[in-house]
Simulated scan of single mutants.
Amino acid sequence: MRIGLVFNPNSGKLENDRGLMKALASKLQGTHLYCTGSTHFHLKEYFDLEVVGSELILNDYRDTVYAGEVLSETDLVISIGGDGTASDIVAGMRMIGRLAPVAGLALGTANCGPFIVLRSVSDIFEFDFLNIEPIWVTGLDVFEEKYVGSAFNDIVISETLISTVGLETCTIDASDFFYKNKRTPREPKSIASAESRLEINGEEVSPQFQPAQIIISPFSEDMKSLYAYRAINGLFCWLPYSLCNSAMIVSSRPIITMLEPGETISAEIKQFILASADTVRLSGFNAFCVIDGNPRVDLSASKGIEVKTNGRAGLGVKRRDEE
């Protein structure tokens, strides 16, 4: 059993949850693990690690994507980070055309994605790392001129994203995070421009109002069932009864942002349920394409992106509660 290890030093709650990482080191004691130079630099005191691939360290998301490429030949990759860390690992695997199962240790901001299977010390010690059951994971593939990455929680078209600064969760500037790897708190604004265009299968579906955020999410069958009989969800209450496995919402005010307790919120929204064959195209927005919490495409400097649902976007592992 060849196990790869990928560590993201920029994950949201790393210092707060370092105990989980120490528990993992105890569980894997004596196990020979593979990693790239970045993970070895940060974790060599905890694990028996063999470095594979280049030892170059860039100190940003490219280290994680590269680790996915190199470790795609292993039997299991353990992602120590958040949802975005796991997504970047899968992106690296997809770029090289070879997938390995990914099991995530929750050290990020949200930790709500399908790859996160280790959330507590007990999860770590009860998990059988040598006998895993891989499962296909539905995601949203993003293409610019070529494949960019896959989202397994959501794609957010926004100027901002939610991240952790110190131990505080806050709204930060996507541009500073993307270009400078810097978390700068800021409030979101409208993302529309005169050139903004939103299409589904070549047909423009832009709303009459000025959008502040666009969110596209994949849905597993379990997730779809949560919307059954709840008409308050609008069109999404039809998801459990359809073959569609993704949806999109366009909002006149930011949805993914921090709010004050008791704050009253109102917004104009437009909802779409997307079939597997549908292609969403976005261009001309003053915003970033944020994939599972990570800005990946600056749409103000891009000709546009396309988003497609993929029922086999990545490989995860079955959790104990899914057995």
Rank of each mutant, 00 (worst) to 15 (best):
R183N: 07
D141E: 15
V102L: 08
A106M: 07
G139S: 11
T160L: 02
A100I: 10
V156Q: 03
E69I: 05
I157G: 03
G166I: 13
V77D: 00
G113M: 09
N181D: 13
F152Q: 06
G92P: 09
L99Q: 15
I172D: 03
F127Y: 15
I191A: 11
D88K: 12
L99Y: 13
E133P: 00
D75C: 04
F177N: 09
V165W: 01
A174W: 06
M95W: 00
L105W: 03
T171F: 04
G139I: 04
S175W: 06
T74E: 11
G84M: 05
K146V: 04
D141R: 14
V148I: 15
L71F: 09
P114N: 03
P188N: 07
C170V: 14
A103T: 10
F127C: 07
V102F: 07
W136V: 00
T184W: 00
P188T: 12
T160D: 01
E69Q: 15
V90K: 00
D141A: 11
I172P: 02
A110H: 02
G92A: 08
G81F: 01
L105Q: 07
R119M: 05
T184S: 10
I124V: 13
F152C: 08
I191H: 12
L99D: 06
D83R: 05
S175F: 07
F115K: 08
N111Y: 01
G108R: 08
I89Y: 03
S190M: 08
R94A: 14
G149N: 02
M93V: 06
D173Y: 06
I191K: 12
L107P: 03
F115I: 01
G113L: 05
E145Y: 09
S87P: 11
E73T: 13
P185K: 00
L105D: 01
E145M: 05
T85P: 13
P188W: 09
Y147G: 12
F127P: 06
R94W: 05
V117G: 01
D128G: 06
T85M: 10
Y179N: 07
R98E: 13
D141S: 11
G84Y: 02
D123L: 07
T164E: 04
P188A: 03
V90G: 03
V165T: 12
L76A: 04
I157P: 04
G81T: 06
F115H: 11
E144T: 02
V121I: 15
K189Y: 01
W136F: 14
G97N: 12
G113A: 05
A91Y: 00
V121W: 01
K180A: 03
T164V: 15
I78R: 02
A86V: 06
L105A: 07
V142D: 03
L130F: 15
E133Y: 12
T184H: 04
T109W: 05
V148F: 02
T74M: 08
C170K: 09
T184V: 15
T160S: 13
E159H: 08
R183S: 11
N111G: 07
I89F: 08
G104W: 01
D123N: 14
F125H: 15
